[in-house]
């Protein structure tokens, strides 16, 4: 029995060693880190003065490089208001007092309550206590031993990708006009199917605004630019309903609301977009410049007024 236990322990030890080596190699591959935007949350700076949350509309709309304030983009593809809140809670220590929080609001923001498909991403950077329905098995699978769920990405163990900037900061691409039409139509249909009147989302947004207020931060609601190809699929009454909802919330929580969805500096200017509702790198820089100039001036004016 002693011999068996000794051999068994040695076997286990070597096995753990081999597996750890493979897992570690995978975790540190550029491919894995690029795909998860790990860098983004590894190096969140301290004393953030302005930041945004949100989904891909957030990732693709705000850059803080030319701002005299320390800014940070916390948005993540398809991230809903609830996860916006969790991300802020995770990194709340990194904010300066009175920081400004930009909350992008668009039609799809109110439809993405089901995050089950990408819940696992948040295991990478949220602490366990913040994760909805935290499950130890998922924590092991996604956080500690991601190689278990690598699938075809196992190739990175042999051929690693090049190190690259996170996706949200590197895309410089213009969609062909014909494709733009098609994509716009499809997206508009998706948005309409989802609708923006989802009660759960509105409650989540309310919770987020309350949290921001309780932290002593200032919130700004923004509807980021989209193309006319997308806008044409929404009726005036649909847009009005949306506008009324957001303006109502802005008033209730005493926050500013900026709507660029039909701004003529963007709506018909295809050079700023990579697809129907996402800005490209140049568009992002241009929008950020305009938005920060206009909003921060207003914000200061409002502060002075108070």
């Amino acid at each position: 029995m002693k011999h068996f236990i000794k051999q068994g322990l040695l076997f286990l030890f070597l096995g753990v060693l081999i597996f750890s080596f493979i897992n570690d190699r995978y975790r540190h591959s550029h491919g894995f880190r690029n795909s998860m935007d790990i860098e983004k949350y590894d190096a969140v700076p301290d004393h953030i003065e302005i930041a945004n949350v949100g989904s891909s509309h957030g990732t693709n709309s705000f850059v803080y490089d030319d701002l005299p304030l320390l800014g940070y983009n916390f948005a993540y593809a398809s991230q809903n208001f609830h996860y916006d809140l969790l991300v802020l809670q995770q990194f709340e220590e990194h904010f300066a007092p009175g920081a400004i929080l930009i909350v992008p609001v668009s039609y799809p923001s109110f439809g993405t309550t089901d995050m089950s498909r990408q819940d696992y991403i948040y295991y990478q950077f949220l602490r366990p206590g913040l994760i909805d329905h935290f499950c130890l098995e998922d924590y092991l699978k996604y956080k500690l031993f991601p190689v278990l769920t690598a699938e075809e990405k196992l190739i990175w163990l042999i051929y690693d990708e090049e190190e690259r900037e996170p996706e949200w900061d590197s895309i410089d691409y213009n969609m062909h006009m014909d494709d733009m039409e098609e994509v716009a139509q499809k997206k508009a249909q998706d948005f309409k199917n989802v609708g923006f009147g989802d009660t759960r989302s509105i409650l989540d947004l309310r919770e987020l605004l309350t949290y921001i207020d309780n932290q002593g931060w200032e919130a700004m609601l923004v509807t980021t630019p989209v193309t006319w190809q997308l806008n044409q699929h929404f009726s005036a009454s649909f847009r009005e309903e949306f506008e009324t909802l957001i303006s109502g919330l802005a008033e209730e929580y005493d926050v500013s609301y900026y709507d660029y969805s039909q701004d003529e500096r963007f709506e018909t200017q295809m050079q700023w977009f990579r697809n129907a509702d996402h800005l490209n790198t140049k568009g992002r820089a241009y929008f950020s410049e305009i938005f920060f100039r206009e909003s921060l001036t207003c914000q200061e004016g409002a502060r002075d007024g108070r």
Partner: peptide, 20 residues
């Protein structure tokens, strides 16, 4: 033997569908 065991275990770990 050990190589065979390790290969089998690694195959399970790396190529298994871990959806429970």
């Amino acid at each position: 033997r050990w190589t065979a065991y390790y290969l089998l275990v690694l195959w399970i770990l790396l190529f298994g569908a871990w959806g429970g």
